[in-house]
Design a protein around this nucleic acid. Structure first.
Lengths: 333, 333
DNA sequence: TTGAAAGCGCTAACAC
DNA sequence: GTGTTAGCGCTTTCAA
């Protein structure tokens, strides 16, 4: 826990100059193989690790990208992080992750933190369609920034996401094809682009007769809100044929309440959801849910980040098409 | 996305020396208020943000600690990260997270990455009781390192964990008090201290008659292994009265298989588990599981890290006592 | 091929 | 109270 081992130490140990040691470690310079071996030995012996910060100060890049997610306990976001990590690993790069704790202030803070640590780029799933704008915009003046999943118009950065309207269309058509006529919507408040698009799509797909006010419940993207919404639905009179949830976390809460009340899913009411996260595979019944092509999106995200868009010009938007995965909560297969 | 603004720029703009600008920005030095105002103006005008890496290079600390977990998709680990984050926030510090993808090699890599980024300390949940040792040991020569949850003897660092044997005792006594006589164990291979301790405890608590070989199933800490183990249990003849799982991820897999086979939990077989993660609250039935006092452990972890133990001397071990949370999978309440 | 020296952006002695 | 200067650990000219 004392002093760090530096190139200087390695150089001294190997009996060469600092420059030579550095060259060997970099690998791509031409150095006498004998000296190179000595340096490698010294490196191993001393347990040397390059100080990324010092190097970055010099080279202005770190081989690391920063990722900020709204909440680390949302399994969908975790799946995104894992996909990004996989893609970055292909090119020997890595990722550091920060949790915005669903707060735009924390998010701004984390973006500054990452920027100060000279990440080569930033991938952000923004907390808010409005409040996240400033931090994103000023970050993108320093480094390539890409928004993922949720879009903040004002940020002026590139974007990777999915067609939420189409996802919702698939959900609604599916439950209708299974005989669902009356539909309730349980989603999050319209503070993010995904929330807005999903709600809008639901409204335009479902006629007003099948959509009384008390069947449109808007809260947060978490399990507690799902529980709360489920209770309100139960207390609000007869249930709809199907409940359309805008996220697995919410659907999980809803399912729990329904189960406790003895409501059978899918027999009494169908439940359809969005995210296709691991959670939906462990509930009972398992969840019919919209899956986003996370792998492909991650790959494209890194590609865009690498070909650092002149965010001044026209921010690029890349929208993928999601696909409904049918499981037990709507009758299966 | 161009050049960064530096203190030099700020100083020039404000018409003072670099040192003065730095002093003003640091806040705690005595500077002429008039000059200070000028500096602040310049800062705002130029949109200056301190380069954390350069600063860190000088001060040797960053206000950031690094955390490495075996797998980011294990909700228990996520809960640990969240708890740590909360404690750090109290002192204006933050955390960066890396995923070791259940590989000691990746883990070593991530530790080096974090060290290179000059984290003030490292909290690691080690991947392996043997293979993780070298990386931990050499890391602890540079910075305070603390092992969390899983212990690697050879690493010689401080440790925070829980009394796994006591946890297991609670599990076994609980199912017995509910009439469970024959018990199966589904856990992970003995590659980590937690796996070893839980298995050992199970073995010494449960007489050999109630513990035939085919009722001791050892695999990995993930859902797939739970599924696999569940199938083997079903295929292996009559079921035991209770299944003791060493992690919620595993229990979730087991529950899924049992459900598909029409086995009723807890009526036909009880299931008890370890971790008390969010997952166990959304399954059906909900899971009886051992809860670790994660908040308290996180607080103590940071405390130990801050009072950087001379890891040379005697590594400190701090062991908390877990508590069983009873839910539906063993009959509730 | 190798070494000496400059400098990335910052702070902390040390002078004034 | 303020400025000058010397590095933190690294890479990279520029000479040799």
């Amino acid at each position: 826990m004392n002093r760090r081992v530096t190139v200087r130490d390695v150089a001294a140990e190997a009996g060469v100059s600092q420059a030579t040691a550095s060259r060997v470690l970099a690998g791509n310079e031409s150095v006498d193989p004998a000296l190179a071996r000595k340096v490698h030995e010294a490196t191993r012996k001393l347990g040397y690790t390059a100080n990324v910060m010092a190097r970055a100060l010099r080279t202005q890049h770190t081989g690391t990208i920063g990722v900020v997610v709204p909440s680390i306990s949302n399994p969908y976001f975790i799946s995104v992080v894992e996909a990004l990590e996989g893609v970055l690993a292909e090119t020997q790069r890595s990722l550091i992750l920060c949790d915005a704790r669903d707060s735009a202030a924390v998010e701004a803070d984390r973006i500054a933190l990452l920027l100060g640590r000279m990440v080569d780029g930033l991938i952000v799933i923004p907390v808010s369609a409005t409040e996240s704008a400033t931090a994103l915009r000023s970050a993108s003046a320093q480094r390539p920034v890409l928004q993922f999943d949720r879009y903040v118009e004002q940020a002026g950065t590139d974007f990777i996401g999915t067609d939420n309207r189409d996802g919702l269309r698939q959900m609604v058509e599916h439950v209708r094809s299974r005989g669902g006529e009356t539909l309730a919507y349980v989603g999050s408040r319209a503070t993010t682009s995904t929330a807005v698009e999903r709600l809008d799509a639901f409204r335009s797909l479902v006629g007003t007769s099948a959509r009384p006010e008390h069947w449109e419940l808007l809260g947060e993207y978490n399990v507690d809100w799902g529980l709360e919404a489920g209770r309100r639905l139960l207390d609000g009179g007869p249930l709809p044929d199907a409940i359309v949830c805008s996220a697995d976390l919410i659907a999980v809460g809803v399912l729990t309440v329904l189960k406790d009340a003895g409501v059978r899913v899918p027999d009494d009411v169908k439940v359809v959801s969005y995210d296709d996260s691991m959670m939906g595979r462990i509930t009972s019944p398992t969840l019919t849910s919209v899956r986003q092509p996370v792998e492909a999106m991650a790959r494209e995200a890194i590609r865009l980040l690498d070909h650092g868009g002149p965010s001044q010009d026209a921010p690029r938007k890349c929208v993928f098409t999601p696909r409904l995965i049918v499981r037990e909560s709507t009758g299966g297969t």
